[in-house]
Design a protein around this nucleic acid. Structure first.
Lengths: 206, 206
DNA sequence: GTCTATATACGGATAGAC
DNA sequence: GTCTATCCGTATATAGAC
């Protein structure tokens, strides 16, 4: 147990446990008893600090979503890097975040899938994304004929799909390929180098 | 209501309803009452025909998994098509299947994520995949220097990620891009044409 | 096979002692 | 703030009439 964990408050202990359990099992399959056990606290304390399972979930979801989006938005908004510099930055940051938080993408996308309203009005992703340096740079590069013609959403889906999908399909991939955890990580680390090259290949004019 | 649905058995009605509800909400969030209501049958009949929620879920999961994998395995096993012919076939078939079954990938990958044992021993995906014409053709092309050096899993993850991810992230993408359903479909139809080109670009030797 | 009524278990939440 | 004991709604499953 690290020093950080020794003098942690009960409230924080519950939040950390809730994050782990919610991200692993999702809202519906999680029992407040699971969280209490994981946090090693009495069940009643959960309601004492957070009132209800729903409220606790809301807090965890908001924090998770913030982390999930920040890996992207912190890069795409930067006016001081070029489009081609941004690509490996996005890939590196996302992969680092996903490696540290293995269940996050499945958690977020699965919960939003079942309840799209979770996303609405919490963050104004639409604004941040569509008015970002990244989108502007991309569209300028298309207009200037420097890269292939392509809708920016297609480009975004490509990056996200190439980076995130392996984490969501990890159990199936491990089964198909008979991969151990370390081999899976090795494939991911290889992707970290390759994805920017692939993205460039895709963007090349034909 | 189509003719097909008119003379359907009660058992089949329950299965179709269960498929719809399970795929949309997942196992834990689904109540047997939801299924009974969707199927327009009495709740007790669900247990009469299928014994338990778990058993019914097992049947739906197995069928879904079969459909999900068949779109892939029916193409990759074909000895009479070349590697480059297989790529658009896989893309077309997967997208057609996903369009008809919008919630399937999230359902399957999410449930397997929570419970990887669901996959084990049901189908021998490992054998079918690894001994397929597709894998052999890919590895031969690499060995012959016709395409860039790449682990076949990386290649598989790329295809799957490019095709499947947009369906899993659909609610988020619609939000970010302020897309209506028809615009989302249009993006997908465009991808159907583009993904094989992108795959070829990725495979090109540098 | 299909219904109503109900048994039973489980999970979220709280009362009240300390 | 933390605990024990418990309430109460809800969900699965079944008994038994038709």
């Amino acid at each position: 147990m690290s020093a950080k964990e020794l003098d942690i408050t009960t409230e924080e202990k519950i939040k950390q446990a809730a994050k782990a359990v919610f991200q692993k099992k999702g809202f519906a399959a999680t029992r407040t008893r699971d969280i209490a056990e994981e946090a090693d606290i009495n069940l009643a304390l959960l309601n004492y600090y957070f009132r209800s399972k729903e409220k606790l979930f809301g807090i965890i979801m908001e924090e998770s979503l913030r982390d999930f989006l920040q890996s992207l938005t912190s890069v795409i908004g930067d006016e001081n890097t070029s489009l081609s510099e941004k690509i490996p930055l996005i890939v590196d940051r996302y992969i680092a975040m996903l490696l540290a938080n293995r269940n996050m993408p499945m958690f977020i996308l699965s919960e939003i899938h079942q309840n799209p309203e979770l996303l609405v009005a919490k963050f104004n992703i639409k604004e941040i994304m569509m008015k970002s340096a990244f989108v502007r740079q991309f569209q300028q590069a298309v207009a200037a004929g420097e890269i292939a013609e392509m809708h920016v959403f297609q480009f975004l889906m490509n990056i996200m799909g190439l980076v995130i999908f392996p984490f969501m399909a990890a159990p199936m991939l491990k089964q198909i390929g008979d991969l151990q955890e370390e081999q899976f990580i090795a494939l991911i680390m290889e992707r970290k180098k390759l994805i920017p090259l692939w993205i460039n290949a895709i963007l090349k004019k034909t």
